[in-house]
């Protein structure tokens, strides 16, 4: 079976001279949750828009489930559901009508039972006869999701799905994403909430300035690039780090009252026991200690800074 999404050499240059994408290659595996991370203007939305057909690429090839998005656009697009970043629905339509419209638009035969279940899953059933203009922002976003799922797509794009969304909707949305994944739907999402990518995604791709910097299993990425930190809160603040501690890469923080030791979580020895012994020998007392793992956010920032 071909991979669900195969992007090769995709470039997008606008007439204004702006270059949004400079040669993107990406493979998304069937049934995975893939998170695309990148700062504003990195090219995330442009990439998604090209795959979905709302932006024309300058050059390159995109295959969706083996179908070329240009030559065989019907088959490719029938496979895709898109929830864009901005809410855009005909405000005078009712919830039911707009979702039914989307299903028809994507060439599927009417299936009221499926749409009913979809609206129930998204807590929209009670609102099915309401006009969009009467709904709250969160409800409108639920309708956008219902529209994207109305034709039972195999590949779902969520562009910044949780930006400006309250806790309830966010929780419901992630429950739905998991449920869809269990049904075999592949999900590609972009997000600013890096903890969510870390928690939800099977794999993460980092994009910046129109280029993919890396694609990695979320767990492997954490392991590979994960640094751990030991923070010691000192009894007495110190002005400089004593020369006797030069073997450890240490930093003084909070006006000399905290000592920070960064170490590689995957190394053979952490160096912590030796450090603590040496501190004892030097008579440096501490009243508290804490260790933390670096988050995807730190990894992301360091990658983007390096690029």
């Amino acid at each position: 079976m071909p991979s669900i999404l195969s992007i090769s050499g995709v470039e997008k240059h606008y007439n204004s001279g702006l270059s949004a994408l400079g040669g993107v290659d990406l493979e998304v595996e069937r049934g995975e949750i893939f998170a695309l991370l990148g700062p504003n203007g990195a090219g995330k939305t442009t990439l998604i828009s090209i795959v979905c057909g709302t932006v024309t690429m300058t050059s390159g090839t995109v295959l969706v489930d083996g179908h070329d998005i240009v030559k065989d656009f019907r088959a490719a697009r029938a496979t895709i559901g898109l929830v864009p970043q901005e809410i855009a629905i005909d405000i005078f339509a009712t919830v039911w009508n707009t979702v039914r419209f989307s299903r028809g638009l994507f060439g599927r035969a009417p299936d009221p039972a499926y749409i009913e279940q979809l609206l129930r899953d998204l807590s929209l059933w009670e609102k099915r006869d309401s006009k969009i203009i009467e709904l709250s922002g969160g409800m409108k976003r639920r309708v956008m999701i219902a529209k994207a799922l109305s034709h039972e797509p195999d590949l779902l794009f969520l562009d910044e799905p949780t930006a400006g969304v309250d806790v309830n909707l966010r929780r419901d949305m992630w429950a739905l994403v998991r449920k869809l994944r269990d049904k075999g739907v592949t999900i590609v999402l972009t997000t600013h909430y890096i903890e969510e990518a870390e928690e939800m995604a099977d794999r993460v791709g980092v994009i910046d300035k129109g280029r993919i910097l890396l694609v990695e299993d979320t767990a492997a990425l954490m392991e590979k690039l994960g640094k751990r930190r030991l923070k010691l809160v000192l009894q007495h603040a110190m002005a400089t780090i004593p020369a006797e501690l030069a073997d450890w890469p240490l930093e003084l923080q909070a006006g000399g009252s905290q000592l920070l030791y960064t170490f590689d979580a995957n190394a053979e020895g952490t160096g912590i026991p030796a450090l603590l012994r040496r501190l004892g020998e030097l008579g440096i007392d501490f009243k508290d200690l804490d260790t933390e793992r670096s988050s995807l956010e730190d990894i992301f920032i360091s990658l983007v800074e390096r690029s």
Partner: peptide, 17 residues
């Protein structure tokens, strides 16, 4: 109107010539 409100994205992304 769809162009103005942004709902045109759905038409453009549909399997519709």
């Amino acid at each position: 109107f769809p162009k103005f409100t942004g709902t045109i994205f759905e038409i453009l992304s549909a399997p519709l010539s």
